[in-house]
C-alpha cells in the first residue's frame, strides 16, 4: 500500500494547478523511491514530468509499484478543500480504485478526508535521455514569466538565442517586433535575483509562446527556474519542488523547425 505524508499541501495544490491546463488525465506512479508523473499534452508538443522523491514526504511508505490514474480536474476539486499549510496524507491500496486524501490543519483541530475515484489510463511513456545541454540559464521564475507574457502580446513564437553576449529572446509579429536580452548577474544580497548562464556552445531555437506561458504557471512553486537548451532538441524548463535535490517539476517543449 501507499502512505505518503506531505507537510504542506501547497506543493501538490500548486503542481496540479500548474499542469492541469496542459494534461487532463495522468498516472501518478508510486514506488519505493517516490511519486512520479509523466504526461504529454494532446498535441504531443509538450511534456510534463514531476518527481517527488520519497524524502519529500515524512513518513513515506510504498511496498509495490502503484499507478494512480487521476483526472486532474477532479483532483483539483478535492485539493481545493485543502489549505496551503495543511498536512496532506495520500493513501492507496495495492490495486486501488480510489485515492484517499486527508488534510489536517497544522494544529490538528480540523481533519478532512476525501476519496477520489481513480481511472485506468494507458499512457505513452517517453524515454528522456540524460542530456548535456549547450546552454543552461538559472533565473528568477517571475522574470521568465514576464518575458514570455510580454512577448506573447506580439507574437506566437519566440526565438531563444544563447551566445557569449547573453540570452536573447526575440519575437516578431504583425504589430512589430521585440527582444529581451539577459546577462549574467550576481546579486550578493539577494541570491534569488541572480541570473546564471552556463554556455558550452551557441544555441538558437524557436518555440511556441503559448506553451512557455503555460509552463510559467509553475512560477509559484519556486523562486528560480532553470532553462536548458541544445540545438535541435526539446527545451527543458525545470522548477525545484523542495529544497531536497531530485524533487522537481519539469516541462519539455519540442522546437519549431525550418523556415
Amino acid at each position: 500500500m501507499l502512505e505518503a505524508r506531505l507537510d504542506q499541501a501547497e506543493i501538490l495544490k500548486k503542481v496540479v494547478d500548474a499542469i492541469k491546463d496542459l494534461v487532463q488525465d495522468c498516472n501518478f506512479d508510486c514506488n519505493d523511491s517516490g511519486i512520479a508523473l509523466q504526461a504529454m499534452d494532446n498535441s504531443h508538443v509538450a511534456l510534463v514530468s514531476m518527481n517527488l522523491q520519497a524524502d519529500s514526504f515524512a513518513p513515506y511508505r510504498c511496498d509495490r509499484n502503484i499507478a494512480l490514474g487521476v483526472n486532474l480536474t477532479s483532483l483539483t476539486k478535492v485539493l481545493r478543500a485543502a489549505q496551503n499549510t495543511d498536512i496532506l496524507t495520500l493513501r492507496a491500496l495495492d490495486a486501488p480504485d480510489s485515492l484517499n486524501l486527508v488534510f489536517e490543519s497544522q494544529d490538528k483541530d480540523r481533519i478532512s478526508e476525501y476519496d477520489l475515484k481513480l481511472m485506468d489510463i494507458d499512457q505513452e511513456h517517453l524515454g528522456i535521455p540524460e542530456t548535456e545541454y549547450a546552454a543552461t540559464i538559472k533565473m528568477p521564475s517571475v522574470e521568465f514569466r514576464r518575458i514570455c507574457t510580454d512577448l506573447m502580446a506580439l507574437s506566437e513564437s519566440v526565438t531563444i538565442e544563447a551566445s557569449k553576449d547573453g540570452i536573447k529572446f526575440t519575437c516578431s509579429g504583425d504589430i512589430g517586433n521585440g527582444s529581451v536580452t539577459l546577462r549574467q548577474h550576481t546579486n550578493v544580497e539577494n541570491e534569488k535575483e541572480n541570473i546564471e548562464i552556463e554556455l558550452s556552445e551557441p544555441v538558437a531555437l524557436t518555440f511556441s509562446l503559448k506553451y512557455l506561458v503555460n509552463f510559467c504557471k509553475a512560477a509559484g512553486l519556486s523562486n528560480t527556474v532553470t532553462i536548458c537548451l541544445s540545438n535541435e532538441v526539446p527545451l527543458l524548463v525545470s522548477y525545484a519542488l523542495t529544497s531536497k535535490a531530485g524533487s522537481n517539476l519539469r516541462f519539455y517543449l519540442a522546437p519549431k523547425i525550418g523556415d
Binding site: M40, S43, H44, V45, A46, L47, E124, H125, L126, G127, I128, P129, S157, T206, S208, V233, P234, Y252, A254, P255, K256, I257, G258, D259
Partner: peptide, 14 residues
C-alpha cells in the same frame, strides 16, 4: 514559416 515538431521526433516511445 517554421513547423511545430512533436516530441516523438526526439524522445523514444517506451
Amino acid at each position: 514559416s517554421s513547423q511545430q515538431s512533436r516530441l516523438e521526433g526526439f524522445f523514444k516511445v517506451m
